[in-house]
């Protein structure tokens, strides 16, 4: 595969929600690339827009949400880049891409599986929708996929209902369903938030193995910095609808540039930190997206805030090292109004 050209390129994506109370800029100018075979981790706290970003990519934004600007370029059929924002969300082409080429692993497998159909039925249905195979073949593929994700005795499990499975197995079945059509891009939306640590480790390892085998790219969304450090190759740090910093995972954790990334990494307790010590904190709380501050969204909590600059204009994402980019006026003084 051509590793120079990204598989997915999100360019200045803006997704707004128009509510009675006003407009919420849930995603406001987000850009990042996903290369083939790469695991891109999007990390951020509540209201940062990570979920809306992936929903925009999948074109499953519900009303009153709307993509108002930007491009989502996806490498479709070899080399041509297709702008997903130009497609009708319900069109045949978008439906083919969704599921067959870009698949979603949701946060709550309990909610994602229908309780009245067996998991086998649902996986087979996904296969039949996107592949020209017979029912028997679809069942075979489904069993194969279940085996691949480590479901014990998949011939039997395929006929069970989602509520008969434990949390870990259910999440595995969900991954099997997402993998059923060999997608080029897997989107995992906090897939381990609802499950326990020991099960989470199983799922993360599984995803890592599958990614290596299938050479699929993964966009992994989480608020857990530990998980992101373990799974991602490249990290996108988001805050209140904007990208704060991007870079390879090692640089983000060992040489963070943006004050938010720095502060966040310092403030989390780790198993290796000294017990009883006081952690450096980020003051204040995350503003609600309705009340987003003008200028840099992080300025009210930033210790390096420069009055007159950070609270008046919004920094854009620009390279700061060879590998990292950050949107912060500490690195580029000129204002950039877009």
């Amino acid at each position: 595969m051509n590793n120079q050209q990204p598989l997915l390129s999100v360019r200045n994506l803006k997704t707004y929600f128009s509510l009675d109370e006003g407009q919420v800029k849930a995603v406001d100018g987000v850009s990042f690339d996903v290369n083939p075979g790469q695991v891109v981790g999007i990390v951020g706290e509540s209201g940062c827009g990570k979920s809306v970003t992936i929903k925009s990519i999948l074109r499953i934004i519900q009303k009153p949400g709307k993509i108002v600007d930007g491009q989502i370029l996806f490498r479709h059929n070899g080399d041509s880049m297709l702008d997903l924002t130009q497609l009708n969300a319900q069109s045949e082409q978008m439906r083919q891409i969704r599921g067959a080429e870009i698949a979603l692993i949701p946060q709550e497998p309990m909610a994602a599986f229908s309780p009245v159909h067996t998991i086998g039925n649902q996986i087979e249905e996904a296969i039949l929708l996107h592949q020209p195979v017979s029912k028997q073949q679809a069942r075979k593929i489904a069993i194969e996929r279940l085996r691949e994700v480590g479901v014990p005795s998949p011939e039997r499990r395929i006929d069970s209902y989602s509520w008969e499975l434990s949390g870990g197995l259910r999440q595995r079945a969900m991954i099997a369903m997402a993998l059923s059509c060999n997608p080029k891009l897997l989107i995992a939306d906090e897939p381990t938030t609802a499950i326990d640590v020991t099960t989470q480790a199983q799922v993360l390892n599984l995803l890592r193995d599958l990614q290596a085998q299938h050479d699929a790219a993964i966009i992994f969304i989480t608020h857990d910095l530990g998980v992101i450090a373990q799974i991602a190759d490249f990290v996108v740090v988001m805050y209140l609808g904007r990208v704060m910093e991007t870079g390879p995972v090692d640089d983000i954790f060992h040489n963070p540039q943006h004050p938010y990334t720095k502060a966040l990494l310092k403030s989390i307790p780790t198993v290796t930190s000294e017990s009883g010590s006081r952690l450096p904190t980020i003051e204040g709380a995350i503003p609600h997206p309705f009340n987003r501050p003008a200028g840099c969204p992080f300025y009210p909590r930033c210790i390096e805030m420069m009055p007159g600059t950070c609270n008046t204009s919004t920094p854009s994402l620009q390279p700061v090292t060879d590998t990292q980019s950050a949107s912060c006026f500490l690195y580029h003084k000129q204002t950039d109004d877009e």
Binding site: E21, G284, A285, P287, F290, N291
Partner: peptide
């Protein structure tokens, strides 16, 4: 804590 906290609730 800074009053910026208040922005964290939606009215």
């Amino acid at each position: 804590p800074p009053t910026g906290d208040e922005a964290a609730v939606v009215l």
